[in-house]
Simulated assay, not measured.
Amino acid sequence: MNAIARDSLLSLEAYARQRSAFRSRVIAHKKERTLHLGEHITLIFEDELTIRYQIQEMLRVERTFEEAGIRDELDAYNPLVPDGSNWKATMMIEFSAEDQRRLWLARLIGIERRVWVRIGGGEPIFAIADEDLERDNGEKTSAVHFLRFELPPAQIRALHAGAALAIGVDHPALTAVAEPVPDAIRQSLCGDLRA
């Protein structure tokens, strides 16, 4: 997977004309890349399309058309595009009530490093979390984290050959697992990987 190039982005005017159709396409695409781990953890696996949409939306909202601003958005978001040997995901910790959210974010410190993927009967591969900056402060964790799962070539080959995929979280205050991961999500994630 390659980084999103500057010349592949739409101008603000062109994006405004295509936005509705593009947004619908991305929403449908994200359904096959969104995994709920229990009631309170959601992983959205990013790829070139989801990140392209995010960049175009940021440029639109901020009305950015100057090269320096466009380059800043590319520099900020391109690291979230998988490179063929990994998956990258946005993890959201979701509690609808503010008092519950505050309580759980304090309990869940370190959860971002306890999210794992397992291919076939292999060992869990734990996420590398928040490479851009720390998102907890010793008193609470953030409600949003950015995760990278670096997959060994043998595991990628096994996945392409049909090995089952499980994804879970193993934290003292919260555990959940999706096993097996639904096939539509598994197939979409396989598309991110080069064997």
Rank of each mutant, 00 (worst) to 15 (best):
V26R: 07
I125N: 00
A195K: 14
M1D: 04
N78T: 03
E139K: 15
R107L: 13
M1Y: 02
A166F: 07
I185R: 00
E62D: 12
D47T: 04
L59I: 00
I125R: 03
E46F: 02
E131D: 10
M91H: 08
G162R: 08
K140H: 15
F146Y: 15
S11Y: 02
R17K: 10
W87D: 03
I41N: 03
G162K: 08
R148V: 14
F45Y: 12
E123F: 11
I125T: 09
N86F: 01
H29T: 04
D99G: 00
H145A: 08
D99I: 07
D99N: 09
L189G: 07
H40F: 04
R157L: 12
R33D: 03
E39P: 07
H36C: 04
S20T: 08
L189R: 11
E94W: 06
F149A: 06
P180H: 10
I93Y: 05
P124R: 13
R102H: 05
E112A: 13
V177P: 11
R157P: 00
Y53P: 01
I44Y: 06
A173R: 14
R71S: 12
I44K: 13
E62V: 00
R118W: 07
F126C: 01
A21D: 08
R186N: 13
W87S: 04
R6D: 06
Q18A: 10
W87G: 03
I51F: 02
F126I: 04
V81Y: 03
